[in-house]
């Protein structure tokens, strides 16, 4: 069973009476349990729409999405899912702790277990100091952090994170990256939409790149980034003499440290796939 599977998932938005936007066009994804999956693509390419369809916030125009084998249109499919929406805003009149308590109770986490969980999560997202402040006074990055907290309050098996690091300071960004790695170690499935390619490269097992609602590239990050037809040698302790004839001499006078395929950066790959895309 896949954590998330989409079959020809398509979404049109009507704008005005006649025109429509094709936000998502026959998208097929199979995301395994325990995988960290990255969704990339230019602005307006359909990443957030995909997440909303997976969570049943939109109804698909065509196709379907399932979460742990259950149709996205059912409420039971949401039992083990947590979402951090893009640019999250929460109830301004609640403080950090009350926000988590509210979402926890909605998920039927109650009593001392909930209080323990709240402490734990506030610590985890680095908001212990601001737990009694109203969210009206939170900065963008703090809202992002509390958003991440509420997504995890009921200990879901699948987390959907829409640009989790937007507006978060560099240290917080690294914290979030480490958190994702930790979640993966715990066997959680994470779907990550992000424009921070270096971070995606670090944490994701597989990625797909969307363009105009279509998948233009999908694959294992390591495989995608390695250049199979080329080799790279890292050598040290080479004499001046041998350096000149290095290709033949490495194994004779130098010590061969490693051989591997050189990798490009995700940025290169991304620009190759969707560079120059106009936003429609």
């Amino acid at each position: 069973m896949y954590a998330v599977e989409t079959k020809d998932l398509t979404k049109h938005f009507r704008i005005g009476l006649k025109r429509k936007v094709i936000a998502l066009d026959h998208l097929n994804l199979k995301i395994n349990e325990g995988e960290v999956y990255g969704l990339l693509g230019p602005n307006g390419s359909g990443k957030s729409t995909t997440l909303k369809l997976i969570l049943g916030l939109h109804q698909p125009t065509e196709g379907e999405a399932t979460v742990f084998g259950r149709s996205s249109e059912t409420v039971v499919s949401r039992l083990h899912v947590g979402l951090l929406p893009e640019n999250p805003y929460f109830y301004r009149y609640l403080n950090g702790e009350e926000t988590l308590r509210f979402y926890g109770k909605l998920c039927r986490v109650t009593g001392p277990a909930l209080e323990r969980k709240i402490d734990e999560i506030l610590e985890l997202v680095g908001l212990s100091q601001s737990r009694h402040r109203r969210l009206a006074g939170y900065s963008k990055g703090m809202l992002q952090r509390i958003g991440l907290g509420q997504a995890m309050i009921h200990d879901p098996k699948l987390l959907l994170l829409d640009e989790p690091t937007a507006g978060v300071d560099p240290e917080g960004s690294i914290d979030i990256r480490n958190l994702i790695i930790k979640l993966k170690k715990m066997g959680k499935t994470v779907i990550l939409c992000s424009h921070l390619l270096s971070q995606v490269q670090d944490v994701c097992d597989r990625i797909s790149i969307l363009r105009y609602g279509k998948k233009v590239l999908e694959g294992n990050v390591k495989e995608l980034l390695s250049k199979k037809d080329q080799f790279q040698f890292i050598a040290s302790g080479l004499s001046e003499q041998d350096k000149r004839a290095v290709e033949e001499l490495i194994s004779r006078s130098g010590k061969l440290e490693s051989t591997s395929h050189p990798t490009s950066t995700l940025e290169d790959l991304y620009m190759e796939s969707v560079g120059g895309t106009k936003i429609i």
Binding site: L79, L83, N87, F90
Partner: peptide, 14 residues
């Protein structure tokens, strides 16, 4: 407008 409805309806809530 505040998108709070997204976080609520993506929890197991009818």
């Amino acid at each position: 407008e505040n998108r709070t409805i997204y976080t609520i309806l993506t929890k197991p809530v009818y």
